[in-house]
Design a protein around this nucleic acid. Structure first.
Length: 287
DNA sequence: AAGAGGCCCTGATAGC
DNA sequence: TGCTATCAGGGCCTCT
């Protein structure tokens, strides 16, 4: 599901709702996420205050009052649900399941505060949640990730150096989190469309002006997607259960067989498997 | 060392 | 209706 924009939407609403709140109780219904949730997870999180909620790439980072961190990744199908306690009953009993917005299945982890709780739901269980002891460990944990597209480190010199002597196509590079972090399969196609670059083009063969277009359009696509509340293809929703709107203005993703939306282009959007991920592009204006 | 491929898992959809 | 096959927005691991 979620790429950088979707994760950012989640972060923003969490920041509004649970910042400075103290974790009252943690309930784990299923430990078997991508990484098994350890036995001591509960005690490491309970009674800690959430000082801040940050994000790097597709990771949400809860900064805790004891200088530790709770790292959350939504994988392909993870969602966070904010559930308010309207009744006088405790949030820890089963009445909250009456909330029409909360799925019945796959609610693996609940983090409970005074008058609301967050529920982590993830059918495919590719996501994870883990406690990181200190800032050094957090740095290590995320050190394999390249700069975000918004980072000034993500510039023409960096790209040139990175592509030098490499054989991968540009689409694969945009998905390579070590090169640039936060872009996923949807936005990679959209970025290449705006840049008028064929996804299969060898990255080391890109011209300087093409590289510049990529830098500009990475920022453009991601920030526009954030403004639109993210993209909802199948199951992305924000913490209130509301869908995003960026999917309505996709230029290529999920548009196989449709006309190219570029002004005066007569091309048809193609779908092609590139490294086992579907890739969409215009056969006419993306050379 | 870089890059390709498999795998983790459930659910929606298409085709028979 | 009910089976099977295929495909999904991610990332880690292994093999060459």
């Amino acid at each position: 599901m979620p790429e950088l924009p979707e994760v950012e939407i989640v972060r923003q609403s969490l920041n509004k709702k649970i910042k400075q709140k103290k974790v009252k109780k943690v309930i784990i219904r299923n430990r078997n996420l991508r990484f098994k949730i350890p036995k001591n997870f509960k005690s490491l999180l309970e009674d800690k205050k959430i000082i801040n909620i940050k994000r790097f790439s597709k990771y949400i980072i809860f900064c805790l009052s004891n200088k530790s961190y709770c790292l959350l990744h939504l994988g392909m199908s993870g969602t966070i649900h904010l559930i308010y306690n309207n009744k006088k009953s405790s949030l820890t009993n089963t009445s909250f399941y009456n909330s029409p917005l909360l799925p019945m299945k796959h609610n693996h982890v609940e983090i409970i505060f005074n008058n609301l709780k967050i529920v982590y739901n993830d059918p495919r269980r590719f996501g994870f949640i883990q406690i990181i002891n200190n800032s050094n460990s957090l740095k290590k944990r995320l050190q394999h990730l390249g700069p975000e597209p918004f980072d000034k480190k993500f510039n023409i010199d960096y790209i040139y150096f990175f592509f030098r002597n490499k054989k991968k196509n540009i689409k694969n590079f945009l998905l390579d989190q070590n090169f640039v972090s936060g872009i996923g399969n949807i936005y990679a196609s959209e970025i290449l469309f705006l840049s008028k670059i064929n996804p299969l083009k060898n990255a080391s063969k890109l011209t300087k002006s093409e590289c510049k277009k990529i830098i500009v359009n990475c920022k453009k696509v991601l920030s526009k997607a954030i403004k639109k509340g993210g993209s909802s293809i199948r199951d992305f929703k924000n913490t209130s259960g509301i869908k995003g709107n960026f999917q309505k203005i996709f230029k290529v993703y999920n548009r196989e067989g449709f006309d190219c939306r570029e002004y005066k282009c007569s091309g048809i959007i193609q779908k092609k498997n590139v490294s086992n991920r579907s890739t969409f592009f215009c056969n006419c204006c993306q050379k």
